[in-house]
Design a protein around this nucleic acid. Structure first.
Lengths: 130, 130
DNA sequence: AGACATCTACGACAAACGTCGTTGACATCT
DNA sequence: AGATGTCAACGACGTTTGTCGTAGATGTCT
């Protein structure tokens, strides 16, 4: 049993991001949050259906005690981010995390604070586990 | 005219990686290269079909002078990598390249040489364009 | 009670994607 | 010439993904 949870699809990931940010949410809350961020509008029942699918897959937990169900993410945000990165690393960077990082750094200028954090991580990485 | 080229799909990206590595290739060459890297085997005609689709989309160029056509990538590898990263950054990291980099660094230990290269990039980034 | 809103459940649908088999043209070998 | 192999082209198909409409139950307001 306990087959590993499937990776979220694009639409599912957008929903997960709402749940990660806002915590427990009703369908309506998710729907309205998406309305604000998303460029393309989706309809209430689409969000409902997606959340139902996600509950069935185990990507979210559903609290059915009230008539209005409440959903929460069942996936860890950082873990999901790493899984997605690993997938992309394998598919587009030949498994090299370094070249991925190098390309990523050219994407957008980070703030000095962020750069500092990255530096610290590099140092820790250097002396870290072999 | 000149609508921007669509992003390659997963299967298309796998093919592009072969073309980036090996340069101009026939369908058969691509097929056999995939056979070696890929875990799941695909059939010759599947690769052919994908390459035909890609040619139509403009993702590859096709040389039809010989009976056996020759394909080459029409997309730049680094540019494609950055596009994919940007997409993931928007979808999963709230547009923050820094947090993406931080997660990526925890993915796999990089070699000292790679770490050095990343450091240099950080420095250049620091003083760089505002 | 009756009108109206809200919610879940469910079926249907179209588009994208990947897969494969078949066909007919062309080449090569004996 | 005939058998065999290789190739491009194409149609068909199943699955996944996202989308939406409708129905029926439940709640709320007057």
């Amino acid at each position: 049993m306990k087959s590993p949870l499937p990776q979220p699809t694009r639409a599912e990931l957008a929903i997960l991001r709402v749940l990660w940010k806002q915590g427990r949410c009703t369908v309506r809350q998710v729907h309205e949050a998406l309305r604000e961020t998303q460029e393309k509008d989706t309809v209430y029942t689409t969000v409902l259906k997606l959340l139902q699918n996600m509950a069935e897959k185990g990507l979210v937990r559903r609290d059915e005690r009230d008539r209005t169900h409440v959903y929460e993410a069942a996936l860890n945000e950082q873990k999901t981010q790493r899984d997605l990165l690993r997938d992309l690393m394998d598919r587009a960077f030949g498994g090299s995390s370094a070249s991925l990082v190098i390309q990523a750094l050219s994407l957008k200028r980070a703030t000095p604070e962020e750069l500092e954090e990255i530096r610290k991580l590099l140092d820790k990485n250097e002396g870290g586990r072999k």
